[in-house]
Design a protein around this nucleic acid. Structure first.
Lengths: 202, 202
DNA sequence: ATAGTTATCTACAACATTGTCAACAACAGG
DNA sequence: CCTGTTGTTGACAATGTTGTAGATAACTAT
């Protein structure tokens, strides 16, 4: 006779959170195609119909996953930017910190993957314009009384460039897909210096 | 009675090439998970066992695909670099041209996808060191008699930065996943200018 | 022509995955 | 203690995908 396991009953919110955690781990490790209901369910310790009960369908699960990850990250970026002292030479440090965390959490990989897969919320969901506007305001302030006011596009590109490259770097470094000779930390320092000196120049 | 279609028989090489073309298109459009034997076979106009006959297995097909794409791209980059006049201000133009073609061919997407998926040949297969060494030699030559000789890491990073960002940009621009306000061409010009002025400075 | 090679096909097997359904059980409120 | 709600489950259906096997037919070489 099968030893019946005592059935555990979580609250709907707890169950959803646990399932989303497991699904996101699968997403980070193996991409959207790696999110299989049976596997996710097994990770959480439930049967796969339970997952379907909470999210309706596989697509519903992925949508919920994307939404949560996007909101989390957006909040983190906002917090990092607002908490930072308004000095130009900290911009690179902010970006570095934010994307270091995106690397650790695996969300750099997740977002790149989702963007490639065509999910609506992918990288385009990460709107850089608010950040660029914030940085631009600092630049304008800092340049008061000087000759030329900075152009917004220049500031935006100065934010976009490290965002793009560090996102990809974070996504690929994590899996060790980069040349072993490559020193990521050194590159980030170099990039920070490049952006910094560019923003400071007239 | 079924109207029997006249069976076409290609040479092994032609068949393999046609199948690889179809598979690569699927890879670019939908990622590795989008490579389904039946679909690929249907695209070529054969039955799926024919694909298995030529590549042994699905994995064999993907391996062959990656190898071909990698060699093709490597050759293209080499050709572009060697054909260019050895002036520093053309470096950005070279990179721009190479990655514009990677965008058009969809290989930016393919490589990013493969790198994320963990395929051995992914982005790490695209070795940037030869290119960096070539550029560095030009820099050294150009600086003869000046004060400080350029550091190789600085040159390497100057190649890596546009490579990384343009690769991702090419991968995402193609699918229209970027903010509609974003002007890719303008960004590339800006980036070229940034790299150029950095390489020229002492 | 004739025979050998092999690219190609149809049919089938094996397996994985998503989704449905009815029943069970844990917990809350009466 | 009883009852309703609902989180949870096992069994099953439907479908899709990879891979196998034997037969067929197109091309090549003699």
């Amino acid at each position: 006779m099968p030893a019946r396991t005592p059935r555990k009953r979580r609250s709907s919110l707890e169950a959803r959170a646990a399932i989303l955690d497991a699904a996101e781990k699968r997403l980070v490790d193996a991409g959207p195609g790696g999110i299989r209901l049976q596997d996710v369910a097994a990770d959480v310790g439930v049967s796969h119909p339970t997952v379907l009960h909470h999210f309706g369908s596989r697509e519903g699960l992925i949508n919920a996953l994307v939404e949560r990850a996007l909101q989390d990250t957006q909040a983190q970026v906002m917090a990092a930017v607002q908490a930072a002292p308004a000095r130009t030479d900290t911009i690179a440090a902010i970006l570095d910190a934010v994307f270091a965390q995106m690397k650790q959490s695996g969300r750099a990989r997740a977002f790149l993957w989702l963007a490639l897969s065509g999910f609506a919320g992918g990288v385009s969901g990460l709107n850089l314009y608010p950040l660029a506007e914030f940085v631009h305001a600092m630049r304008v302030e800092r340049r008061k009384g000087r000759k030329k006011p900075p152009v917004f596009d220049d500031t935006y590109f100065s934010v976009l460039l490290p965002a793009l490259s560090l996102l990809t770097l974070a996504a690929l470094e994590q899996k060790g897909r980069l040349d072993p000779r490559f020193d990521g930390a050194k590159f980030r320092v170099w990039l920070a210096e490049l952006i910094h000196s560019h923003l400071e120049r007239d």
